[in-house]
Amino acid sequence: MAATFASRCSRVGRSLFSGPSKSSPGLFTRSHEMTCSNVFSQQLRTFIQMRTVLKVVDNSGAKKVMCIQALKGKKGARLGDTIVASVKEAHPNGKVKKGKVVYGVVVRAAMQKGRCDGSEVKFDDNAVVLVDKQGQPIGTRVFGPVPHELRQKKHVKILTLAGHIA
C-alpha cells in the first residue's frame, strides 16, 4: 500500500517538476514545491480567525491587515462576514495608517462557502475591504472579483464599486 503510494507520488512528481528518479526524494521535492507554489489555494483553507493576515483590495491606503476579532460566529469569519482588524502594512500617504484598528468585510476567502442553491464557491486568496462602523466602504475603488452574496449582507456599495461579480 505504502509502496504503491510512493511510486505514484514519484511518478507525478517527476512528470510535474522533473525531479530525481528515486522514489523517496521525488516525494519530498514534490510536497515541498507544492507548498511553495500553491500557498494560497492549498494552505489557507480555514476560517478567518485571530492573527489571519488578509490583503486589502481597495484604495483606502492599507495593504495588509491582521484579523483581531470576527464579529459573528464562534469559529471565525467566512466569506461576507465582518471582522475587526489591525493595519499591519500601509501606503505612506493613505487614509488609513499603520497600527490603526479598522473594520473590514471579507470579500474573498480561500475556504469554500455554500451558496444558496447548494453549490460552493471559493477564491484564490483572503481579501478584505475596509469599512467604517456603519458599513460604508472607506476607499472609493474595489479590485478583483467579489461574490454576489454581499448583497444579502447589505454591502451593495461594495458590489457597485467592484468590477467583477462572481
Binding site: 447548494g118 453549490s119 460552493e120 471559493k122 477564491f123 484564490d124 478583483g144 462572481a166
Partner: peptide
C-alpha cells in the same frame, strides 16, 4: 453538465470562474 446546486466553483483573482 452541472445542474444547479451541484459541484464547486473556483474564482481566480483575474475573475475567471
Amino acid at each position: 453538465t452541472i445542474y444547479p446546486g451541484h459541484g464547486i466553483q473556483f474564482v481566480r483573482n483575474d475573475a475567471k470562474i
